[in-house]
Design a protein around this nucleic acid. Structure first.
Lengths: 398, 398
DNA sequence: TCCAGAGATGAATCCACCC
DNA sequence: GGGGTGGATTCATCTCTGG
């Protein structure tokens, strides 16, 4: 079900204790107008965050939280996605409405992000507060794998305390370790690394503050079962509802904007979910470079590049990365082939110079030879040692 | 300089605007007594966190923050290490004293930790608030490497906005991309993954809530230079002062406990810092399993083990890990050798059964053969397909 | 029914020792 | 002596029991 209108009014139409999970991503207290155009510029979504002060913002949220509490079942939970400038006030509101004793956790959604050049730390996380209505809340335990450093052999062993209260491993009379029967894995942490919705992801519908579906799926799976009811009073582009549908949950969505409601309906008719290769395979799968290549890059102090065809790394001079792509000739590769690859990469992205490092060179160089630049602006290092001269030469060129 | 006493009084003895950085790790609002014995049971450190209510706790902190603000230079900063149950009130206090406009960031210290069996998410982060005294605060920019998934090729390209306000990459008249001259790397994120101070670390001094030195070093390096003054009004075991010393900063430490002061002095005389291999080399360095072995483990749904000799993985049945070690016979390895390795591992840790998977077996099995258990309680699977029968058999045995 | 205190928990990871 | 691995130790814990 989807309702259009101010959620304070719309929530009043919902029965007491009829909802299992509420997820809220309320407007932020930024005192700015947000807007974003769709990719083809056909449509513009916007909303205003305007409150006279932080107290009125807190009140605005709090009176809506009261209604949320009313509609949540005794086994239900609420997740509040917070604005970083006002998260503390939102949590005070949650304490007021749901009581501090029902605080179940502070979830950190961490991601990598395009950087800006502001003074200070690069903001790369958001906070989601998790409160339950009662102590008897529904919670599906989720387990993850062990850290590679864990001594799994050992964690099966039972323990006892000695007279000082220190624990030791329990042994049977035979001297053998006493073992537990099974292990479930590591309980889900409250720090979630989920890639920020890529600006080009199919999932994107051009709505500001859109959240990744997997973030919502994770929340829904933790605290609801099939056919449970999920409510989002600020449903925006409808991510929560889409995630609920994909997981076989029922949903109620509310938003004040007619545009948002229409968008949500369109989205629900044809849900798209990006498959993040990064999440599926882990960061390591991108580390497909030969160990040898990486070692060479390290010795010449270049930074490795994992995903640009034809390029193995970029030049670094005194810890500053320069726009000079580097390729290391493969053993199985002819010089011309290597040049070709590199040249194409250089031209594609408009780099002025590029360096090719030969690893099977038979050419002898003397200390006095100057590095040569060929007609395609490639500098060819006859071996790794020859690279340092090239570095010096390049410094004067770029 | 180290002072013993309530920091509210001791702070009053410090001159106006004489400190560059304040780091506070005040007692938490846990309403409990915390204590920990040193490893040799020679000494016990403890403190109590008891306030009548959250308001009195907030006031307690706030009046100390006012003194902190007074002693901080105009270019100085303050970092407040927060309690999970009261962080929102602490931030309100910071807003009150330092003003919301001087909020510079919310740092997430994320770590992995031994778990416990609680309902809900495993708490594995702590929050540190970063406020400056004025907009003109000292900040040393720190850069990190690019993520392996970054398209480094592209970030050199300059951008312009088109008539619709969309950004596109800038091209020169020739059609070539226009490039920037250099890149520094990625600005330091506000999510810091630093291993929790390990129970076995030599750095540990037996004081409850002791923080890792590198956490403090990171903070000190961000906002101070050499010979600057670092102040910790709740210095506890003195980690902040140790970090300051190691980085050539001056320090002022205050603590109410005489024990803590003595410990701090001893520690400063002989600072010990654990060097974390995990941090230095990254988690990946522990992943030493063969790709082929990993693939086999994946097909039989076992969990891989990275650091136990003779064992490649553990049995998993319906997502539950069982105390049954598994080894996959290497190509270069005789059956007897493989058996030997596995048997030794089985006995060492007291496992009742173990499974060896042959990958070069010539033995033909029929569907009707029951898996055999040899005299050493090893079950030998003649190939990967044969494993499923063993799984069924084991389920009745364990 | 609630609170205090005892007892059980469980994986991370540094250290020390081994080869 | 250097790399690898067995072992120790912890909890700003968590749960359960009993008065």
């Amino acid at each position: 079900m989807i309702f259009q209108g101010d959620c304070l009014l719309e929530l009043k139409k919902i029965d007491n204790e009829s909802v299992d999970l509420v997820y809220l991503d309320p407007p932020f207290f930024t005192q700015k107008k947000h807007s974003l155009k769709t990719r083809d510029n056909s449509r513009e979504y916007s909303f205003e965050d305007t409150w006279v002060n932080i107290e009125s913002y807190k009140n605005y949220i709090q009176e809506r939280l009261v209604e949320c509490k009313r509609v949540i079942k005794d086994t239900g939970s609420i997740f509040l996605h917070c604005d970083r400038t006002a998260s503390h006030y939102l949590r005070v509101a949650l304490d007021d409405v749901f009581s501090a004793s029902n605080f179940q956790g502070e979830i950190v959604w961490a991601y990598k992000r395009w950087s800006n050049s502001k003074k200070g730390l690069l903001n790369s996380h958001q906070i989601i507060y998790f409160y339950s209505k009662t102590a008897n809340f529904k919670f599906n335990k989720v387990f993850e794998g062990y850290s590679p450093t864990t001594n799994i052999d050992q964690i099966f062993q039972k323990r006892v305390r000695d007279e000082n209260g220190k624990t030791t491993y329990k042994r049977e009379q035979t001297g053998e370790y006493e073992l537990t029967k099974q292990k479930m894995g590591v309980p889900l942490s409250d720090v979630w690394e989920i890639p920020y919705l890529n600006p080009k992801a199919n999932e994107r519908v051009g709505y500001p503050t859109q959240k990744p579906i997997i973030l919502l799926e994770k929340i829904i799976e933790l605290t609801t079962n099939k056919d449970d009811v999920v409510l989002d009073p600020f449903c925006g582009s409808g991510t929560t509802l889409v995630a609920a549908t994909l997981l076989g949950r029922k949903y109620i969505g509310i938003d004040i904007s007619i545009d948002a409601i229409e968008l949500t309906k369109r989205r629900l008719a044809k849900p798209i979910k990006s498959h993040s290769l990064l999440l599926k395979n882990g960061k390591d799968s991108y580390l497909n470079q030969d160990k040898k290549i990486l070692e060479i890059l390290e010795t010449i102090e270049a930074i490795p590049v994992q995903r640009n065809r034809g390029i193995d790394g970029f030049l670094k001079i005194r810890n500053i990365v320069k726009p000079v792509p580097i390729r290391i000739q493969r053993e199985s590769e002819s010089l011309d082939n290597a040049k070709d690859f590199l040249l194409r990469a250089r031209k594609k992205s408009g780099f002025k110079f590029a360096v090719l490092i030969r690893t099977n060179s038979r050419v002898e160089e003397t200390l006095f030879d100057l590095p040569k630049i060929n007609e395609d602006n490639l500098l060819i290092a006859e071996g790794i040692e020859a690279f340092s001269k090239i570095k010096v030469r390049l410094e004067s060129l770029i």
